[in-house]
């Protein structure tokens, strides 16, 4: 699915990703945890193609193609999706119209005819139900005036509409109450299949109770410093990150 090799990237002179490696196979769910500022969102943004960051070294292969060579829109069209940690409010752009335009551009890219209005509406209804997003929200401007939880749910709704092959969820659980967390997790679980992969960035074990990962990685200082099975998350919850930081510093 995606293979990230020795990725180094930063802003200006500041290096944030310092040789990051990760391999995700189709159908797998990988969780990335790690202290604040370790570079998790930077990784997500670099993969999605945010131009503020400069990649200085390394490579990323996505479904056999050179990801770093593509524009952000082509990455999305190739099946990459990023649920943002801080979704942007865009007044005046209707959620639904925007998604419709997205779908038709993605389909055009793949050489498919535009989606029929009827099929589109059916799809909207279906996916809305999946994340229990109120119809009125889908018709409003993108994220404008949405509560924190509604924004996160809207991200998952968009993901469901765009049916990516790899979804990166950047702290989609933060700011969610227990019910919303369950709804979002359910939405994700329903989209899990053998061809679709997820990278779930989170600080909390509680999300991983619902979305059970195949692997857990700990990111620190721009790198993965520890990987393990899902039980690693429990250990982190219990012990915090200090022991990992110490281990790391000893190695250095």
């Amino acid at each position: 699915m995606i293979s990230i090799n020795n990725l180094k990237a930063g802003i200006g002179d500041k290096e944030i990703l310092k040789g990051f490696n990760l391999n995700v196979k189709p159908g797998e769910v990988h969780a990335i945890m790690g202290p604040n500022g370790s570079g998790k969102s930077t990784l997500a943004n670099v993969l999605a193609g945010k131009e503020d960051y400069t990649v200085t070294d390394g490579s990323v292969t996505f479904n056999g193609k050179d990801l770093l060579d593509m524009s952000p829109e082509d990455r999305a069209r190739e099946g990459l999706f990023l649920a943002f940690q801080y979704p942007v409010e865009i007044p005046g752009v209707s959620n639904i119209n925007f998604l419709k335009t997205c779908l038709s551009e993605i389909r055009a890219y793949k050489g498919l005819p535009p989606i029929e209005a009827k099929d589109f509406l059916k799809m909207v209804k279906e996916k809305q139900a999946l994340v229990e997003l109120q119809g009125s929200l889908a018709n409003r401007s993108v994220n404008e005036g949405f509560s924190g939880g509604e924004k996160k749910r809207n991200e998952i709704f968009q993901m469901a509409m765009l049916e990516p092959s790899l979804a990166i969820l950047d702290e989609t659980d933060s700011g969610l109450d227990i019910d919303a967390l369950r709804i979002v997790a359910n939405g994700v679980n329903k989209l899990r299949d053998k061809n679709r992969s997820f990278v779930v960035i989170t600080h909390y074990q509680r999300l991983l109770d619902y979305i059970v990962p195949d692997f857990v990685h700990v990111m620190y200082n721009g790198q993965i410093v520890k990987s393990g099975p899902k039980e690693l998350a429990l250990e982190l919850e219990e012990k915090g990150y200090d022991w990992i930081k110490k281990e790391e510093e000893q190695v250095i």
């Binding site: 524009s71 999305a76 865009i90």
Partner: peptide
């Protein structure tokens, strides 16, 4: 960027 990340040119 948000819009482009959703596939819009």
């Amino acid at each position: 960027f948000y819009l482009r990340a959703r596939g819009l040119s």
